[in-house]
Nucleic acid binder design. Structure first.
Lengths: 147, 147
DNA sequence: CAAATTTCAGGGCTACTGAAATAC
DNA sequence: CGTATTTCAGTAACCCTGAAATTT
């Protein structure tokens, strides 16, 4: 940052939140890009690893990705051989999405990559402060995700 | 959120940060939209109010908006009569951007709007926790903005 | 000459809407 | 019938790059 930021902005909690998130997002996005991926890919693969094969709609609900964006991201993951997409024999509306062995390797790679990024992002904070921050953010997120 | 989020994600500090920021950003963006504005407008007007007339490049540096996006946002603000854009007589490369009386009124409106949004965003946190959070985020942001 | 400014054209990523076709 | 799923087309906002024209 070259010059001073208006105090009207720096005094806004939401500004601190969105701006620091933008910095974090930039670092994570660059790390993913270097590994040939982006955020949606990681979120979908992580969901498949944790919950197993699922329909696209279920994947979207788990990973907070819009149904429409799930389609596009899965197209890319499928083209790279990281997931299989087959029609559900029990429900003609659905596809069953499964992660492949290559997909699991890719996912492990991305976990490593994103874990390293955490250190760069939260470098200025002690372990205690990181815990304090994640606790507060966790409460914030939980509040806005319930309904 | 309908279904569970993978623990690989919820355990990532950067995920908590970017997701809670996304929620905050959505609330702020909706508030701005209801007032006929968006984030860039507010950031530019706040900069003009705090630092006075400035060139577009200086505005961009103050508000962390790319030179290219400053052009587009100023086009909109100018069309609405919120800023004046005149060539700098002392430097043929520059425009001098000035906020108008209507622009100041618009800015005050947006300050009210964005202040109200803070309460909705940080509702689950006590005043003490809000201070803790903003302190931690401020340190994070300061670290990534220096070089 | 190099550097700064404005402008335009364009892209990437996340997030979202509306509509169609299909199946439950 | 209403609801759910997949897919496509399109939009908004923010962030960023490259290049041209102009001026310092």
């Amino acid at each position: 940052m070259d010059e001073q930021t208006p105090s009207v902005l720096t005094g806004l909690p939401s500004w601190l939140l969105t701006q620091s998130a933008a910095q974090a997002g930039r670092i994570v996005a660059e790390s993913f890009a270097a590994a040939g991926a982006r955020g949606y890919h990681f979120r979908l693969l992580a969901t498949l690893v944790e919950f197993g094969p699922a329909s696209q709609a279920a994947l979207g609900r788990h990973s907070s990705i819009d149904r429409s964006d799930v389609v596009a991201a899965l197209n890319e993951l499928e083209a790279d051989g990281y997931v299989d997409r087959i029609p559900d024999p029990d429900d003609g509306r659905r596809n069953i999405v499964t992660i492949t062995a290559a997909g699991r390797r890719h996912h492990r790679r991305l976990v490593t990559v994103v874990t390293k990024a955490q250190d760069e992002i939260f470098a200025p904070l002690s372990a205690t402060d990181r815990t304090r921050l994640t606790t507060l953010l966790g409460r914030l997120l939980a509040h806005h995700q319930q309904y």
